[in-house]
Nucleic acid binder design. Structure first.
Length: 861
RNA sequence: GCCCGGAUGGUGGAAUUGGUAGACACACGGGACUUAAAAUCCCGAGGAGCCGCAAGGCUCCGUGCCAGUUCGAGUCUGGCUCCGGGCACCA
């Protein structure tokens, strides 16, 4: 064994051994219980970043740990390979998206392999391969057959100069990111998946997900946004043929209705106009509203803008004619696109009524001393006709009954969740398998003709709509029904479609007769542990849950929830530097020094140290994992990211922290190298003669460390504290080996301690642990070794330290035998000289004991 | 704006169920080794103050801010401040 730790050499060695030995390939044919571990697959952007290093290091700990616990672990990896950056690279650098993507995958796969991650690479998938996206198309057709895929008009961000659709991130302050032209909405007919058909089930089933973080469940619940209420019609004054259907969650407040509001886009608005003057005003108002984002329109701190129409509507409950408005704070996408407004009991309506000088009628008695504006709490109904005297909940029911009896309304459940728009006017995605025939209309591409492949020969200009429109070969087809010429749909699918079922494709990645093998899904599903960034807490996870339910209803899998346990990891952050004039600076490009201060290379002015932010290219605070691995090795990179913070918290990058992780590994290496010979001759049995106190303490520490590391990995993924415990054990062993007496009687224990460290560290730093294990004389690799057990007997404390408080403040400490009685401990505590001092002249009122920990003596009432 | 989180020494963090705040590590300071430096090893340390020649001992304050519950609060409750994630075409 070499004296020096050479990570490059040993990491290459073990990676080769794992690869040649196919150590991590798994099949369904195992007597062991299955464990499906999944990490969110990366977008192949070019290089892995620290977020990936963190995500996959966490995952690999779990994978290797679970194998040691005797599970048949499926741990796959693949590529979320469709997306905008590839198309941007094509536009900016003239590389074809498929080539750019393929090169990135090759490079990044190599980087992941150099991290020593225990994937079954035989199962790798890339969503941009026709063998994969064929099944996106197949699933689309199944959804279409079931009425779960449909077309409707919706608006997109349109740059009139580039004549193209922009993604939200390509719109900067309302302007096109390429040409600074103001972006305007444009109405297009687009494909939607009817996720709302599953809204109730998606909500209900959250209750089954005990293994998900509470905050994610809450975010999903709020996103789905179920609200119960009523829908009913308001007749338009003097227009027998017209009525406005409104949705409200507060049917009990109908007697407080001061006015009604339509969304400016509401189709009924045009039919309510009186003359060209009003039409022009409405057009002007609509144009203003269109400039605002939905977020701006609904912001509670902005003035609510509205336009009063000449038409009036009738409150069916009391026959009152009330004003009708169009206003920005009512959205066409929620409810019926129209509301009744009750300023007394709704703050938005209250704000609006104040601005427009409208009546405010209170319909719920305010509590004593109420000073607020709109009152949304419970109470007794007033000013409400037949509802007077009822509580809010009863009044809601009575009001709905009243509506139902007269046939003008009904109880409804409304969701904030909207259908999922999947159309994208782009090239680098899955083509939507639909044809348009002049005679037959919309015709799905027959299954037998899938996949509809992306054509290679298209220009990438960033202008003029989807590149697919430029390919005649792609565009023209013949109608499968009548054989006449037909035109292909040129939209491609949202990339969230790809990632909504990839975890199923891993189960049979090469199958060409179905998206996945139902038998294999029966064995592997659901995913036992899913690990990825918090930023996916709502959308990706909701879409994947939706797809799983649809695939279940298609009879392909039995599970209704894809991910049993979820770990959402925090982001990787680092400090930033910027120049007042030239913006963000790379630490490496600054001039000057740490002592005299860093300066901007362009203007020489002092660089301000900005705050710690999420690593991103734009803020120039990225650290390339490649350099890290080259300089220190994969084990150090892994150890640092796992030790610096618990997984769910943000991780702050620290060059010194990396240095520290490396130093620990070096120290461990040196320790084993120095004592290897002595350890080799140590027997593995302890001398049965009486052990000294020091040796008994060391034995307890070893077992306590095994327990601590086990509990930290198993229960809560707190790898930082697990590693800290191992460090403590190494510190203790380092002291022990200096003690002749311990060597004499306890050599086997030192050996057991070193081996425990190596085995416990294997999930974290597998290369180093494997190399040390081999050097300790073991023939079988750690892949075949079981996780160590601890002995309860060895954990037994020989004496307990009890803290003694007087009136809640620590005043003394006593040591007692572990089986000491309450009475004994109380007597000892009261007898402690320091405690006595604090009790002098005071009366003991009561004594509180926490078993094995603490005594609190309360002296005054 | 709305929804969801977070804040603990000079720094990252620990304290798992309301019971010794600061484990482990980094940075720092001191010492050993060395001709010297690096590396390594050992020691110290939350802040303020007090007692003592010294070793050492003692007191108060302290987990973003303000209240509250409790014998006891980093942990629970209410109200704030600041920072971050998501908000439906980034993935």
């Amino acid at each position: 064994m070499e004296e020096r730790y050479k990570p490059k050499k040993i990491e290459e060695k073990w990676q080769r051994i794992w690869e040649e030995g196919k150590s991590f390939q798994v099949s369904e044919n195992s007597r062991l219980p299955k464990y499906y571990l999944l990490e969110m697959f990366p977008y192949p952007s070019g290089q892995i970043h620290m977020g990936h290093v963190r995500n996959y290091s966490i995952g690999d700990v779990v994978a290797r740990y679970k194998r040691m616990r005797g599970f048949n672990v499926l741990h796959p990896m693949g590529w979320d390979a469709f997306g905008l950056p590839a198309e941007n690279a094509a536009i900016e650098r003239g590389v074809h998206p498929s080539i750019w993507t393929e090169e990135n995958i090759i490079y990044m796969r190599n980087q992941l392999k150099r991290m020593g991650l225990s994937y079954d690479w035989e199962r790798e998938v890339a969503t941009c391969n026709p063998e994969y996206y064929k099944w996106n198309q197949w699933i689309f057709l199944k959804l279409y057959e079931r009425g779960l895929a449909y077309k409707k008009i919706s608006s997109v961000n349109w740059c009139s100069s580039c004549e193209t659709v922009l993604a939200n991130e390509q719109v900067i302050d309302g302007l096109c990111w390429r040409c600074d032209t103001p972006v305007a909405p444009k109405e297009l007919e687009q494909w939607f998946f009817k996720i709302t058909a599953y809204a109730e089930e998606l909500l209900q089933d959250l209750d089954q997900l005990a293994g998900w973080p509470e905050k994610v469940l809450l975010m999903q619940r709020n996103w789905i946004g179920r609200s119960e209420g009523a829908e009913f019609d308001l007749p338009v004054g003097g227009r027998r043929d017209l009525k406005v259907r409104v949705f409200t969650t507060r049917p009990d407040t109908v007697f407080g209705m001061a006015y009604a509001v339509l969304a400016p886009e509401h189709p009924l608005v045009d039919r309510l106009l009186d003359g060209s003057g009003e039409r022009a005003e409405v057009e002007r108002f609509r144009a203003e509203v269109l400039k605002q984002s939905e977020q701006e329109r609904t912001a509670e701190d902005r003035p609510k803008r509205g336009l009063r129409l000449s038409a009036r509507v009738v409150n069916p409950f009391n026959g009152a004619q009330i004003p009708l408005f169009i206003a920005d704070y009512v959205l066409m996408t929620y409810g019926t696109g129209a509301i009744m407004a009750v300023p007394g009991e709704d703050q938005r309506d209250w704000d609006f009524a104040k601005v427009h000088g409208l009546d405010i009628i209170e319909t719920v008695r305010r509590p004593q001393g109420w000073t607020g504006e709109a009152y949304t709490g419970d109470g007794i109904k007033i000013n409400s006709g037949f509802l007077d005297g009822l509580a809010v909940a009863d009044a809601k029911r009575r009001a709905i009954d009243w509506l139902v009896e007269r046939g003008i309304g009904e109880a409804t459940v409304n969701y904030r969740l909207r259908d999922w728009g999947i159309s994208r006017q782009r090239y680098w995605g899955t083509p939507i398998p639909i044809l348009y025939c002049e005679g037959c209309g919309i015709v799905p591409v027959p299954e037998s003709e899938l996949p509809v492949e992306l054509p290679q020969d298209v220009p990438f200009t960033g202008k003029g709509g989807s590149p697919l429109l430029e390919s005649q070969r792609f565009l023209s087809a013949s109608c499968p029904k009548c054989g006449k010429p037909a035109r292909r749909d040129t939209d491609t699918m949202d990339t969230f479609v790809d990632s909504s079922w990839y975890f199923l494709r891993y189960l049979s990645p090469k199958l060409d007769s179905a998206p996945f093998d139902p038998d294999k899904a029966g064995y592997w599903m659901a995913v036992d542990q899913y690990i990825g960034g918090v930023e996916h807490a709502v959308m990706h996870l909701l879409y994947a849950r939706f797809f799983t339910k649809v695939l279940r209803d298609l009879g392909l899998t039995k599970v209704g929830e894809p991910f049993t346990n979820l770990l959402t990891q925090g982001m990787v952050c680092k400090e930033t530097y910027r120049c007042g004039e030239h913006g963000w600076l790379f630490p490496g490009e600054m001039i000057g020094s740490e002592k005299e201060g860093w300066r901007c290379p362009q203007c020489g002015r002092a660089a301000e140290q900005g705050r710690v932010e999420k690593m991103s290219k734009s803020k120039k605070n990225i650290v390339d994992p490649e350099e890290l691995i080259t300089a220190y090795g994969a084990d150090t990179a892994r150890l640092f990211t796992l030790f610096a913070a618990p997984p769910e918290k943000d991780l702050e990058w620290s060059a010194q922290g990396v240095e520290g992780a490396y130093r620990f590994l070096t120290r461990l290496w040196r320790f084993v190298a120095q004592h290897r010979k002595a350890l080799a001759s140590a027997s593995s049995d302890l001398n049965p003669t009486e052990l000294s106190q020091n040796i008994r303490d060391l034995r307890r520490l070893i077992h306590r460390t095994i327990k601590k590391v086990t509990d930290d990995i198993e229960g809560r993924f707190h790898f930082n504290t697990a590693i800290a415990a191992v460090m403590e054990l190494l510190n203790a062993l380092s002291l022990s080996v200096k003690d002749e007496a311990i060597w004499k009687d306890g050599a086997p224990l030192i050996k057991a301690g070193v081996e425990a460290i190596v085995v416990l560290l294997y999930p974290f730093v597998p290369h180093m642990a494997s190399e040390l294990w081999e050097n300790l004389g073991h023939q079988r690799g750690l892949e075949e070794i079981r996780w160590p057990a601890y002995s309860l007997e060895a954990l037994e404390e020989e004496r307990l330290l009890i803290v003694v408080q007087v009136d809640g403040r620590v005043r003394g400490k006593i040591t007692v035998p572990p089986d000491a009685s309450k009475e004994f401990i109380e007597a000892e505590a009261l007898a402690d000289p320091k405690v006595k001092g604090f009790l002098r002249g005071k009366e003991v009122r009561r004594v509180i004991q926490v078993p094995r920990r603490l005594v609190n003596i309360v002296s005054e009432g």
